[in-house]
Design a protein around this nucleic acid. Sequence first.
RNA 1: UCCUGAGUAGCUCAAUGGUAGAGCAUCCGGCUGUUAACCGGAGGGUUGUAGGUUCAAGUCCUACCUCAGGAGCCA
Length: 430
Amino acid sequence: MQAAEVGTIGRFDGREVKLTGWVYNVRSSGKILFILLRDGTGTIQCIVEKTAGEELFTSASRLTQESSVGITGTVRPDARAPGGWELRVTGLDVIQIAEGYPITPKEHGTDFLMDNRHLWLRSQRQHAIMTVRAGLIRFIRDFFDNRGFLCIDTPVFTPNACEGTTTLFETDYFGDKAYLTQSGQLYNEANAAAFRKVYCFGPTFRAEKSKTRRHLIEFWMVEPEVAFAGLDDIIELAEDMIVEVVGRSLERYRPLLEGVLERDVAMLERVRKPFPRLSYDEASAILKRKGAAFEYGSDFGGTDETLLSEEYDRPVFVHRFPSAIKAFYMQPDPANPALSLSVDLLASEGYGEIIGGGERVHDLALLEKRIEEHGLPKKAFQWYLDLRRYGTFRHAGFGLGVERTLSYICGLQHVRETIPYPRLLNRLSP
RNA sequence: UCCUGAGUAGCUCAAUGGUAGAGCAUCCGGCUGUUAACCGGAGGGUUGUAGGUUCAAGUCCUACCUCAGGAGCCA
């Protein structure tokens, strides 16, 4: 008997095959019975007729949602079947009858679904999101790999804060304190001096008590860093990357985005070069004109980001934030040292900041001064200062939040669906 | 940490201060092409927890717990 998978069932037209999987739903109509079988690659309708044998029919009628089975049958096209193909069942091998599967084919609340995240992943919607996620990660890697960037991993355990200000998860490291990384950037700068164009791609941890639809405690970030590059260079790099990964996601997953996730892809189709570039000062003026409760000198809130992004039909760059609200390593703007050569990319439709980056301080004396001003432990930064002692160089980079980007591409209400097992303020399980 | 809202059957939700109910799920029965199938029947409850007001509390009051959305902070 030929083993087959639902995803490629068309190859077996007219032949008898064996499928293995889980029962998604059963519908019975007296003398005919429909099993919707899910095998991880897709779902297919399997029909069992009473004329095929009393024993087979009785056995099939006892199936419950998520029971595991092996089903043999003949593949044939049928316009009435979802997906266009169906299986006329000739044999049924029941592996286990599942009892009381919690997620029924009706509506459920998010708390209940999150408690059952390990089962929720079986649903068509989550299947679609995880498929696009895997694709997005591949497209991002392809983008950098094809441009001569080297993927250099940065550590998850770090001896000190990268930016000092945000809250870190502290762990016991054989009697010493160690922290879970909140960015690979400082290491990226060392790697850039060794390999010129580098990126890291890994998990990031923020012990912030943020509880919004844009926040995860554990999330994935891709961070490129480029030697002998400035602010304008990495803005262009970020722009090229977004255009490519959004374009490829749309090209590859349009049926999932439109069909399963009901994404209005028109917004994604407009993601073309060039993106608008606003200075912080210009953005402030727009917010003032729109009557936002924003104060010049502070960072944008979620509402401010939405107000700015709705001015444009594509993602928008905001650059040259005040140095006071950016990290200690941001290079000051030569035209106005109160401002920094920093940039954020705001996604459309209120999805907010998906990229943050800028040009780094490369002058030793200035960096030492900044470390002191920020009250950071100078000793822990000696290796970082070495990068300015031994062949310092102008360099810049950024970080892209994978989950926020995916949320934007898929058009989701909340980032918690973009990662298989989300860690949130009040949730560590499953 | 703060603001707002919500906790009732396994799930999603109803119930003017006066006998706690429906749909789905489960079980039984019916139906020869179903599309979250449909039709009939059955079982299923310490109304988040602890107090209080009242003849009477799911409903009103207080505290706490949990969850949701948001603020601050950030990708």
